[in-house]
């Protein structure tokens, strides 16, 4: 039921052993996936996910780095999904919007401002965002702001830094 929902707007990819779910709407272009494992996650390729480009272990490790639920995964053998270690942050047992929202203890957490190498700044937490005369409440959520100046969707990142070859040096 849940996974049906998840699939409604996104896609899923499998290598027979695990299934990786992709929800493009949730992506903030933090770029861990293609930076870590271009053989599997290549934004310039169609389809952009090749589940046979690396080992299952490498794919799991990389999907767990995604700071949003844009990429999640599970074992195809449901038995194996029962007892998943929480360090697997992006296993479907843990990355569920409803669970994240109910975690009120996260409320007083400092806002995380993460500088992605050669990429955007990813801001995660509860904060007020002001831009272009607008004011928006971001409530326990993630946004990604452009650092290269070339985005077509300023002030937000749209992934253009990859095409322009922006680098931090």
């Amino acid at each position: 039921m849940e996974s049906e929902n998840r699939n409604r707007r996104g896609r899923k990819y499998t290598n027979g052993e695990i299934t990786v779910y992709w929800k493009p709407d949730a992506c903030v272009h933090a770029s861990h996936c293609y930076r870590e494992l271009l053989e599997v996650f290549d934004p310039g390729r169609r389809p952009w996910v090749d589940m046979y480009g690396a080992s299952t272990a490498e794919i799991i490790r990389t999907v767990n780095m995604c700071p949003t639920e844009a990429l999640t995964w599970k074992w195809n053998d449901e038995e194996k999904n029962r007892d998943i270690d929480p360090s697997n942050t992006n296993h479907v047992n843990f990355r569920r919007p409803d669970l994240l929202k109910n975690d009120s203890s996260a409320n007083a957490e400092p806002v995380s401002v993460k500088i992605m190498p050669d990429g955007p700044v990813v801001i995660n937490g509860s904060f007020v965002l002001k831009y272009g005369g607008k004011e928006k409440n971001v409530d326990e959520s993630i946004i990604s702001l452009c650092r290269c100046g070339s985005s077509n969707h300023l002030p937000f990142c749209d992934g253009t830094h990859r095409k322009t070859g922006f680098n931090d040096n």
Binding site: G125, F127, L145
Partner: peptide, 20 residues
């Protein structure tokens, strides 16, 4: 809200408050 993230016009991102 723990912080204020302000995108300054034709300028930098200013962040104040409780953040890391």
């Amino acid at each position: 809200p723990q912080a204020i993230v302000e995108v300054l016009e034709d300028g930098p991102i200013k962040i104040t408050g409780n953040f890391m």
